[in-house]
Design a protein around this nucleic acid. Sequence first.
DNA 1: GCAAACCTGTCACGAACCTGTCATGAGCGA
DNA 2: TCGCTCATGACAGGTTCGTGACAGGTTTGC
Lengths: 223, 223
Amino acid sequence: MRVLIVEDAADVSEAIAIRLGKFGMACDVADTCESAEDYLAVQRYDVVVLDINLPDRNGTELLQDMRSAGNRTPVLMLTALFSVDDRVTALDLGADDYLIKPFDQRELEARLRALVRREAEQKSDVVTLGPLKFSPAGLSATLEDVPLNLTRREATLLELLLRNQKTPLSKKRLYDGLFAFEDADVGVNAIELYIARLRKKLAASSVSIETRRGVGYRICNNG
Amino acid sequence: MRVLIVEDAADVSEAIAIRLGKFGMACDVADTCESAEDYLAVQRYDVVVLDINLPDRNGTELLQDMRSAGNRTPVLMLTALFSVDDRVTALDLGADDYLIKPFDQRELEARLRALVRREAEQKSDVVTLGPLKFSPAGLSATLEDVPLNLTRREATLLELLLRNQKTPLSKKRLYDGLFAFEDADVGVNAIELYIARLRKKLAASSVSIETRRGVGYRICNNG
DNA sequence: GCAAACCTGTCACGAACCTGTCATGAGCGA
DNA sequence: TCGCTCATGACAGGTTCGTGACAGGTTTGC
């Protein structure tokens, strides 16, 4: 899951990012509306945490721009001053939830999960490919009903591949799904590594990951 | 098991919470419809105990909102004035059970367990895994018919694991099932501790708790 | 009321495992 | 054949997990 945190107080955003990171959420941090727009232009997020008070513009304006541009990503507003008016405005503009500072980190996490869950309720079902079953709920997979022991990264990668069986996924795309910007120094080679590790675990079955040189990877079943 | 108690009489809600707490249920208390909605937005509950008479709105309205928002959490209505009309209304709106004040605490417990059981489609009260039998009513378990001496927390954890044998449960999920919001400062490490303690008690049997690093825990029987 | 027993959760440290880099070699296309 | 992309084993570093010891709190029994 990928989260964009738009917040100018570095200490706050960092605390959030570290904490969410521990629960497997990939966090990017923007400290102005402008940089937030850059992030949003480049990357799809599962949810956005948006402070109202930002140095360059008001967070509600950013929200408004997002919505009028057709961006339906769930947004959680965050602010110290949240009058009833602000709150109504925010919700009317398309915010999905709000939280008043100071807030409890655990509550933030819970609300984010609730938002994402609401969004992902439909696609949380089990994905199947021949003898391979993947359950996003527990990040677990079985091959001919024998559990595969996948690590978190392996599971994420497998999910990406399974959800896009038609088209090969470029290494870039996989990379974006697997790592946040802050993992900036991770080499692209890491993707190859995880593909190799997945292949090893799938070796005994009819499911395989095929390479399209210069294009990407695709998972398929030759059963 | 996680319970939301919506009741404005503090003495009543507190009594319920303390009592249910002793049976390993993590209870959050809301004294208005509004705060109840906040809780519901943030946290998944196994069951809601809902008073009809609340200061801000009628409990049935809250119930109606929940159902129309697609929330299928079992609800037990609670009230002093329960005419047949009220009762019919409540059930029509999607309440799963009702109880007339004053009521016996033990009856409340029993009904809550029944509701949750119905939801989990458990035929019998007792959950079994190989030589391990768990009875939620008394929070007691036996291993090869020898009683295991479980503490409240251990028993709650075991129940969570047993009711979700298919998918590994994340530490976060276990945490949410074990602790209420008011236990806010408990560290995540506590989960590891209780897992260790449970393992010790299960050591002599074929039942074990496996770790999925970075993903969660799962109980299974290697008999 | 008091004391003993027990439950609960923190801390700290070591072990186990995951993660990503590097380096080397294979495979493919031109 | 050359140059590139990809595959994969080995390894270091970091993170997550397991567990013993302990302090504070609660329950139990007297």
